[in-house]
Design a binder for these strands. Sequence first.
DNA 1: CCGCTTAATGCACACGTTAACATATAGATC
DNA 2: GATCTATATGTTAACGTGTGCATTAAGCGG
Lengths: 334, 334
Amino acid sequence: MAVTIKDIARLANVSHTTVSRALNGSPLIKEETRRRIMEIADQMSYTPNYNAKSLVLQKSHTIGVFFTSIASGTSSSFLADTMKGVSGVIDVNYNLFVRGIDDYTDFSSIHGKRFDGIVLMSQSDSDDAFIYHARSKGIPLVVLNREVKAEGICNILSDDRDGAYLAGRHLIDSGHERIGLIEGRRSFKSAAERRDGLLRAMIESHLPINGECIVPGDYTTQGGYEAMRALLDLDTPPTAVFCANDDTAIGAMNAVFERGLRVPDDISIVGFDDIGFSSYTNPALTTVKRPIERISRRGAQTLVEWLRTGIAPPQETIRLHTELIVRKSVEERR
Amino acid sequence: MAVTIKDIARLANVSHTTVSRALNGSPLIKEETRRRIMEIADQMSYTPNYNAKSLVLQKSHTIGVFFTSIASGTSSSFLADTMKGVSGVIDVNYNLFVRGIDDYTDFSSIHGKRFDGIVLMSQSDSDDAFIYHARSKGIPLVVLNREVKAEGICNILSDDRDGAYLAGRHLIDSGHERIGLIEGRRSFKSAAERRDGLLRAMIESHLPINGECIVPGDYTTQGGYEAMRALLDLDTPPTAVFCANDDTAIGAMNAVFERGLRVPDDISIVGFDDIGFSSYTNPALTTVKRPIERISRRGAQTLVEWLRTGIAPPQETIRLHTELIVRKSVEERR
DNA sequence: CCGCTTAATGCACACGTTAACATATAGATC
DNA sequence: GATCTATATGTTAACGTGTGCATTAAGCGG
């Protein structure tokens, strides 16, 4: 049914070897012959069978994009931005394969025959088993969004600690002294980094750190809502709260409104990520912009280059800058 | 490097054919032999080479998930919900391939050798060329989210017209008579259906339809913001506005607040989709729930069944129910 | 005219798997 | 015990493509 190089060979009165070489730009073929073959191929609208190619070349023509989980814990904007970034870079005759790591019970099907390379958007150190496996199989791997010290893998992530520090500074500079924190999902590395950044800003300014003002969260809107309720129940609630991400911040704002309080007049809120909606909350959310799409694009580019040249990128950790976006959810109380 | 059935055959002292049969559960193999082979395979942690399998079986083991566009026009929650729905159903030894149709300049690489089946989350009739192509190549195709009358393809979508009708009824029952509409993206079929649903409710109740109260939108938050500003600039603005989706509604609410007006006291707003954030807007958004994840899951199941049994599903249009979610953004003004 | 180099092409096999056909073994039938 | 049948396994070719090696043709120096 489908046209193969043998079909072309028959029409061109050459061997299929010659056709193969002509189509792949081998210097062994006479220019005139090549043109003739190309023309026939074109006219028959030949497309190579990638399975056959892959089989003989020991390449898969597939790039895997993995998330820690697709089913839960990954926010929509995060997933979408990643897909946008990656799919813009990988050209269309690569297969773009997408999965959550938690879809797998064992990793036996993850091997070099199946994936030329992998982009891992990693959120949790539970991914380490996956990373270890991929490395042991020798699959080129770029890890995004989380620092992994293992040898031979390239990290690209946003400087969350720095971003959280900026957010903290902003609150402090605005005159806040009693600052609360709603944390991110416990096992996620980013959660720890953001906490550390905020705390560094507070320590640097000699502000006291009250354990009661630090409450757990899970990066969800519902989690932010509940955490903020807990903070508001304190005898003296904080005047400003740093939320580990925007989803959390939106939930937190709801809890504030529910008590009949106002943002930022009664309580200031800062988020993290700058998802699309954060400029449309009421009041608009002051937050830290994290360039997920840029990270993904950069990661995909790194991988593509790696595959093209065959030389691994330097084992370095690239941190893309975060940026404080000041909107309306923080009160100046000087 | 990688272990093949021939390696197993050598160790088991049988031919590779026997191994192949044993692993594939052929009844021709003695139970004892099978066990022995299985054990060896297991112990060597054998994984089949899917390229070789695909080559000989003329199957690709790949399911394509296509969007009209990944780069633009597809909201994050839409994309994410689709991925969640599909990836939950397709088992992990299928390749899950994801792309936007607009990534392609020509469809020559879309053929049966490359895709066992395709799930198309279609938003625009610009996808018709793609659909036609896939059909002509004989690729099993399930089209989600948009009705396509072409023969032999199965449609699964939400009943947007009915949902919009429900929203309209709700506004009318709440005492609104001057009702505005911010439309969806012009080329998207869903935009027209939602408009029709609303209009039907209004006509049914003998409400006048003012052209000036119907303004264009594009399913984006920014678009909703601008459209609502236009509505508010009217001499007599509507008392309630139906927005073609939640993103639009959120933008619209912002425009209302910006004028110092209140929702729902001064103006009522209804959205469509029930994205995650719509219960966290302030006030919480009354909207119509559209089960994207369920649609995707159902679509993927249909396709999987089709591939498993080899018999095409009846060419029908399945409409999953939408549901009115009443929250706080509509005023009772009776 | 012979041998030698260079350019262009073909032959045959390999990649890992499945399947049609062939073969071997054992038990059943007469 | 010869013949048949059923059961279990092996042989071989095929899927579509790329590549090492052989082959042919042509050009060239002596």
